[in-house]
Design a protein around this nucleic acid. Structure first.
Ligand SMILES: NC(=O)c1ccc[n+]([C@@H]2O[C@H](COP(=O)([O-])OP(=O)(O)OC[C@H]3O[C@@H](n4cnc5c(N)ncnc54)[C@H](O)[C@@H]3O)[C@@H](O)[C@H]2O)c1
Ligand SMILES: NC(=O)c1ccc[n+]([C@@H]2O[C@H](COP(=O)([O-])OP(=O)(O)OC[C@H]3O[C@@H](n4cnc5c(N)ncnc54)[C@H](O)[C@@H]3O)[C@@H](O)[C@H]2O)c1
Lengths: 290, 290
DNA sequence: CCATCTTTGTGCACGCGTTCACAAAGACAT
DNA sequence: ATGTCTTTGTGAACGCGTGCACAAAGATGG
């Protein structure tokens, strides 16, 4: 079920790099803050610091939008806010629907930042009949039966999925069929969508796991104090495991009855726990493209 | 997004690529599903499809962990689940605290997937005195005054921030000072943290803006058929930019006023598709999780 | 034991993204 | 005008991540 495509054809030539697009909102936020303080201009250095990025990167990002700065001075805050907003398509109104009004969906509906920048919650949809009509964040929840009419009726092109994982794909299909072409998915599932539909995913579980990885690495580093070289000290190495079936560690996992959550495999598996190799740190997108 | 900051001589050659680490949870989820269905083995092709990635990429990812597959057969599901879990550090228990039990914080606390994979909500913390003692998701909310003792007392190294943007940095500082070295931030702010601390950010607003960008582009593409060139048009050219003052639009703003971001350490933005930036690597001794 | 078929593991090339470093543009002072 | 100073915009180098293509490992069948 390969999810949708990831990159666009060649039409990209004139486009703005994805990495840059992902940072524009960040710049916009920093600029908005400056705007509120009536700061007239900012240098790439200052703005970069506020946005938490490298100034060269910021300048290059802006260069994709055009030459909006003034050498020797910096960038006009108001003007840049406008340009970025326009580039991101925030100068128009985007009706959004949230499907699955449970814990998360309700929280999202109540989120103020939602409507603050061109996004408007057009409707809240849930499959639970008991929820129908019930107001959440000032908006009456509507039943899934009306999903299609809501989408087409309001010209919604962005949908947020906050249903259980099991219902996500189904909801996704209906949204797409009704005309939605951009989806923000909170359910822990890989959504399959036709070409032309963008899917971005927010997965708390994955974020935590990535943090755990680094956390473990940090801890491991501390223990290996006495280790001389950092190069070749793996452990019951991969290469070695080859050849001998019997060498495979006895899995602490319960044979085939393990249902539910993954087995919390035996704690530190002997050698394993020891020094983990360290890896680059840095990061990865919290959200991934479809 | 996440940690970024100073970066270091990327000489850490023995590590697993960040991009790979970010995908491991995805593979793990797919594998867990297979495991529940008692599927004994999977080929890279099948698993890749389930995880929504390219099979070659998957094989390369696994190759960083070791040679855990069998040519002509595929990978042993149970064994791989164990190996990935161990690599991600999920074979141990990670106590986590959530700070800011509002709409979002409460939803997070109620999220089951949280505890399903080695993560345990050790405590819920909020500054509102009225919340103290109140049970959320079966756990009594504790007041911020106890933040430090909770962290040290439970050996917490991972913290989740779900407070308003204005309080995020302050909360972050306290968490870090108390010993937390990994933070998942939901507040729309750039957090400044000392070296060695990882920060990952989940920002709904940014996700929507990115979707809006693509959405606008899709719409524009269809209309622009008749338009001439797309290079430099629609806009006041660089030099003459000053002329179109009147066109500027006042934009609605979102909270998130940030004080002096004088931070030395910058943070990155997670981008989307392509490559990620590499980051620093924490040298600061981490706190050993219990 | 050999032949054939399947699937892994990876060398390699390519493209994107990041960062450095600097020429040039413009502001400002004289 | 001319000189100096500040800051942009970007060419170029580099490193990472991706995906192709294929040799080799191992299973399977004769
Ligand atoms: N709560 C969190 O913090 C959190 C974090 C990360 C991911 N998630 C994911 O987000 C999703 C929602 O989480 P939650 O805690 O809000 O769950 P929840 O059970 O509280 O809410 C799910 C809601 O979806 C509705 N629903 C079910 N099937 C539906 C369908 N076919 N169409 C429309 N609505 C439907 C249910 O009636 C319910 O109201 C889950 O997939 C969860 O894994 C939640
Ligand atoms: N709700 C969402 O869907 C959503 C989505 C994206 C981002 N966010 C962000 O997440 C954060 C929380 O959102 P929310 O909707 O839950 O807000 P909320 O106002 O409902 O909850 C905030 C909670 O934080 C507590 N708090 C305030 N200052 C604190 C402090 N110094 N220490 C500890 N607790 C403190 C408050 O008492 C309150 O309970 C905000 O920054 C918001 O921008 C929310």
């Amino acid at each position: 079920m390969a999810t949708g495509r990831t990159h666009r054809p060649a039409t990209r030539s004139r486009g703005i790099p994805e990495a840059t697009v992902a940072r524009l909102p960040l710049y916009l936020r920093a600029l908005t803050a400056l705007s509120e303080r009536s700061v007239p201009t900012v240098s790439s250095e200052e703005l970069a610091a506020a946005a938490g990025v490298n100034s060269a990167k910021l300048r290059k990002d802006f260069s994709y939008l055009g030459s909006y700065g003034t050498r020797g001075v910096g960038y006009d805050v108001e003007y840049l806010v406008y340009q970025i907003s326009r580039e991101l398509g925030l100068t128009q109104d985007w009706p959004v629907v949230i499907v699955g009004i449970g814990n998360l969906g309700a929280a999202l509906a109540n989120y103020g930042g939602f409507a603050s920048r061109g996004f408007r919650v057009a409707a809240l949809i849930d499959a639970d009949p008991a929820m129908a009509g019930k107001p959440v964040a000032g908006i009456a929840v509507q039943h899934t039966d009306e999903l299609e009419s809501i989408i087409t009726g309001n010209g919604v092109s962005i949908g947020v999925i906050a249903t259980p994982a099991g219902a996500a794909q189904q909801v996704c299909d209906r949204l797409v069929a009704a005309g939605v072409t951009s989806i923000l998915n909170f359910a822990p599932t890989v959504l399959s969508v036709p070409e032309g539909v963008d899917v971005r995913k927010v997965d708390l579980s994955i974020e935590l796991q990535i943090l755990a990885f680094h956390e473990q690495r940090k801890a491991g580093e501390g223990e290996r104090v006495a280790l001389p070289i950092e190069g070749g000290d793996l452990e019951p190495s991969p290469g070695g495991s080859r050849g001998t079936e019997g060498e495979r560690v006895a899995l602490p996992i319960e044979g085939g009855a393990q249902a539910g959550p993954m087995a919390r495999a035996g704690q530190d598996t002997g050698a394993a726990a020891g020094g983990r190799q360290q890896g680059p740190d840095g990061d990865v997108p919290a959200v991934m493209p479809a």
